[in-house]
Structure formats: C-alpha cells, structure tokens
Amino acid sequence: MRVFLDFEASSLSKNSYPVEVAWAFEDGASEAWLIRPAPGWTEWDARAEAIHGISRAMLDREGEAHDRVAARMVDALSGHDLLASAPSWDGKWLSALLRAAGLPRHALRLRDSDDAHLETAMALLQGAVEPAQIEGVASSLVASAQIRAAGEQPAHRALADAQEERLRWLKVRDEAQALACRMRGSGGAR
C-alpha cells in the first residue's frame, strides 16, 4: 500500500535531525510522532522552529524516544511503498533516525511522491489515451493536481503535510479515472 510520509526537522543543515514524523496510508490511516532527540542531536535553528512551531522544550516534554519512533516506523511501514514530496531531505532524516536507533539506515526506503502520482495516472489512462500521449497527459494531470491555493504555504507539520500529499494522490487518481471514462466514452484510444 502507498504511504505518504513527512518529517519536520531541527534545521536544514547537514547536522539536522528529525523532530516530527507522520505518515498517511492511502486508505486514510495515519500516525504522527514528536521525536525526543537522540543523545548528540544538539544542532537547533530558531528559524526552523518558527516555521514548524515545535520547540526543543516541547520535544523534551512531549516527544517519544527516538528509538521507539524508529521501531514503530519499521513495524508499521515495512513492505509498503513509502512516498515523500522531498525524498532527499526526508530520506536524510529517516536515515538519521534509523541509524541513531541502531537500525540499518536502509530498513525503510523513500520514493518521490510525484513518481507515484505519475504512475497512478499512467496506469489509469492505459487503453483510453493513445500510448504516445499517456505520459504527457498524465504529467499534465499531476502538475494541475494542487490541494492548496496558489501562494498558500504548506502547514509545515508532518501529519498535515503527509495528509496533503495523500489528498493530492487521490485527486490525481480521481481525475485520471474520470478522464479515462470520458475518453473511452468518446471512442478514446484504439
């Protein structure tokens, strides 16, 4: 099953670490965790805190131990298709979390959610759109499938951002299905 995942972090520096993680399964089931920093995770950027609103004190008070969060992730997410809108950043923080917990850094792997959006649209358009046009039509559907209004910023909280990416996938899926039905009804691809 597809799972949309997002992290918030202490900063965007090379020494940053995850402070929150959340995921939303394609069926809507979701979890969110504040992460109490591992020993040695000390780097902090007040600008990042201003964006996500998570303070170091909040993590110390309300966060779950980093190793418990990592274990829960491996338990809940192994065997699923893990998707992130910023896989290089989210992958960095996933790797840091897994390594700090003593788990293999590749125990879980992320892919770009845009790839999943495109794959879904292309699969649904098969037989309805000319083969030479499927990728272009699917790409157009993905590009136009926005959840936020133009200029509106993401929530910068892990659960809201993961759920938004799930909603975007659902929108791509629904629009591709509707287009495929219209094309088949009008004679579409042969």
Rank of each mutant, 00 (worst) to 15 (best):
R166E: 03
C181P: 00
I54L: 02
W33V: 04
A143K: 13
L159D: 01
R68L: 15
R148K: 14
P104T: 10
H156P: 06
T120H: 04
Q126R: 15
R47I: 09
A107L: 12
W23Y: 15
A162L: 01
G185S: 14
S78R: 14
D6V: 02
K92G: 11
L108E: 06
H156S: 07
A123C: 01
D67M: 02
A162F: 00
C181G: 09
E165W: 00
G79R: 12
L59A: 11
G187L: 04
E26N: 05
A9F: 06
R68C: 04
A24G: 04
E49D: 05
A138F: 02
V69E: 08
E175A: 14
L83W: 04
L125Q: 02
E135M: 10
D60L: 15
A160N: 09
A48G: 05
A128P: 06
A70W: 04
H80C: 14
P37K: 05
W89D: 01
V172E: 06
G127K: 06
A158H: 09
N15M: 07
A71R: 13
A57F: 04
I35K: 06
A96N: 12
R182S: 08
Q153S: 13
L118D: 02
W169V: 00
D90P: 08
V69K: 10
A149R: 15
H80S: 15
A24Y: 03
V21C: 01
P131Q: 12
A123K: 07
A57G: 07
L5W: 05
V137S: 10
W93T: 03
Q177I: 11
A57V: 07
A46Q: 08
S88Q: 14
V19Q: 03
G188Q: 10
L83M: 10
G151E: 10
A70L: 07
S85H: 14
P39T: 06
I147W: 12
A123Y: 00
S11H: 08
V19C: 13
A22Q: 04
E49I: 04
A180R: 04
L124T: 00
D90L: 10
D90N: 09
A162W: 00
A96D: 10
A86T: 09
R105W: 10
E152R: 10
K92Q: 13
S11Y: 08
S113W: 01
R109H: 05
A48V: 04
S95H: 11
A46V: 12
M183F: 12
R148L: 15
G40C: 02
G63H: 12
D114C: 02
L77P: 09
L110M: 03
G127Y: 07
A132H: 08
S10H: 11
H117C: 15
R36C: 09
A29L: 11
F4W: 03
L167H: 06
R61E: 15
G151V: 12
V3Q: 00
L12H: 09
L159V: 03
R173P: 00
H52F: 11
D114N: 05
L59C: 12
A101L: 11
E62M: 10
S186V: 07
N15D: 15
A180P: 08
